[in-house]
Design a protein around this nucleic acid. Structure first.
Lengths: 202, 202
DNA sequence: CGTGAGTTTGACCATATGGTCAAATCAAGA
DNA sequence: TCTTGATTTGACCATATGGTCAAACTCACG
């Protein structure tokens, strides 16, 4: 393995290449379904060379997940207590849908992990994620108390946003099998927007 | 393999046992993540004995999927063109949520398959599923034309129902990590009900 | 250049896994 | 009870897979 000094030019490039290749493979096949050889080939490296940069398959997966968790939660993080409630929420939803459109691999990486019981990120869920959600539901409840948005179960409101937006990335094949040529996001955007405008109107 | 005469008592029992065990294992680990040994152990049989009833791992998986697809689509099938629109749709949603609660393994079996691109059921999606959805969206559009429910993109309306209801089965760990002790379905039921009443009101 | 650290790889290993087979055991009807 | 087909299994096989290692090769820098 590379010493833990400042990473060289080559180390930087290869680590990034590997993580990108691993994202392709893990998101498409899940942890168990992905093979180190597949990732190595995808990255254009030999297997031993890949294992020179990461000590194990598990290490690559962990590096990916923890590196992407922040990105994944950023939209919710940005929900601003001091903003205009309806606008803030709709903007959050918009950013979330945008992520499903632009980062479907990341969405499926987490989906794979969650569907199988999140064996490798259970801690992050009950700690970081729960903390963030608790913080933001407080904000939502505040807005409800002020009558700015309709009173709803704040946790389920957030779940619904996750479900509706991530569905288009996670179950992409199904959506496309039904819609045919039509671009899923074309119709999803106004549909979801309408849905939440109606739902949240006080 | 058993001859294709009328199945014996033992054949019936063992096939059922195997499919049930396989549902446990496949839904928890995905196709690639499940092992024949695991399924055999779960079923209380030896591996060769299990392979006496099904010719391969793939065959078990296929048998499961095709056997459960009907069950899975039944609620949508039951959506009755001649019923009262709002009531019909809310009833469909209710049945769908009930399935997430009572058949989470089945939900995750399909979720696993879909997230990974549905390599083994792509045909069923573009044929059976698409046909059924097309049929029912026609009904929905009819109701919209009559002004019985709000005008919305009918496909996305159905997607939203799938997303919101199956989320509770597929991402169960995440939901529970955030809700803690609270029963997810306790709050989900009224939340989703409210959501669609507001959304569908003309 | 020369040299040592950083990088790459062919060959290899242990284990896991899907699947096979012949022999043994069991069950039910004549 | 006897016989025959159904059922079960221990032993085995080929392949796939995660991971190791020593030797070879590159590259940056004095």
């Amino acid at each position: 393995m590379p010493k833990d000094r400042a990473p060289t030019r080559i180390q930087k490039k290869n680590r990034a290449t590997i993580l990108n290749a691993a994202l392709n493979v893990f998101s498409a096949h899940g942890f168990r379904g992905a093979t180190v050889d597949q990732i190595a080939t995808e990255a254009g490296l030999s297997k031993p060379n890949l294992l020179y940069y990461f000590p194990s398959k598990e290490a690559i997966h962990t590096a990916l997940l923890s590196g992407l968790l922040e990105t994944w939660l950023a939209p919710l993080h940005d929900l601003d207590e001091d903003g205009e409630p309806m606008e803030e929420i709709l903007s959050y939803i918009h950013r979330k849908l945008q992520m499903s459109r632009e980062l479907p691999r990341e969405s499926r990486l987490f989906a794979n992990e969650l569907v199988q019981g999140a064996p490798r990120i259970h801690d992050a869920l009950s700690n970081d994620l729960k903390a963030l959600v608790d913080e933001k539901t407080t904000v939502l409840t505040g807005w409800m108390d002020q009558g700015k948005i309709a009173r709803l179960h704040p946790y389920h409101l957030i779940f619904s946003i996750w479900a509706l937006t991530q569905h288009y990335a996670d179950f992409d094949v199904q959506v496309r099998a039904i819609l045919g040529e039509e671009d899923p996001f074309e119709g999803a955007e106004p549909f979801i927007d309408t849905l939440y405008r109606k739902l949240l109107s006080p």
